[in-house]
Amino acid sequence: MPEALKTYVRIVDAFNRRVGRIVMYGVFVMMGILLYSSISKTMFLPSQWTLEMAQFVMAGYYLLGGAYSLQLDSHVRMDLLYGRWSPRTKAMVDVVTIFMLFVYLYFLLYGGISSTAYALKFGETSYSSWRPYMAPIKIIMVVGIALTFLQATSILIKDIAIARGRPIA
Rank of each mutant, 00 (worst) to 15 (best):
43 M>L: 15
166 R>W: 07
29 V>N: 05
43 M>W: 12
50 T>R: 03
155 I>K: 14
85 W>Q: 10
15 F>W: 10
155 I>H: 04
48 Q>N: 14
32 G>K: 07
3 E>I: 11
25 Y>W: 15
101 L>P: 01
103 V>K: 04
72 L>D: 10
23 V>D: 08
9 V>L: 07
129 S>L: 14
131 R>F: 03
166 R>Y: 11
121 K>I: 05
4 A>Y: 09
102 F>L: 10
52 E>C: 05
135 A>H: 10
19 V>R: 01
87 P>T: 03
98 I>L: 14
59 A>L: 09
16 N>V: 06
40 S>M: 13
168 I>N: 00
43 M>H: 10
130 W>C: 02
37 S>R: 12
121 K>Y: 10
129 S>E: 12
78 M>N: 10
95 V>C: 15
127 Y>Q: 12
27 V>D: 01
26 G>C: 07
95 V>L: 11
93 V>Q: 05
36 Y>F: 14
80 L>I: 14
105 L>I: 13
79 D>L: 09
94 D>M: 02
49 W>Y: 04
25 Y>M: 09
149 F>E: 01
40 S>D: 12
143 V>P: 01
157 I>D: 00
70 L>W: 08
122 F>W: 13
122 F>H: 11
18 R>G: 09
137 I>R: 04
64 L>P: 00
120 L>G: 04
30 M>A: 14
31 M>V: 15
142 V>K: 06
74 S>L: 11
149 F>V: 11
125 T>R: 15
143 V>K: 06
18 R>M: 08
77 R>W: 02
166 R>H: 14
167 P>I: 02
98 I>G: 02
110 Y>H: 14
28 F>E: 00
65 G>T: 05
146 A>R: 03
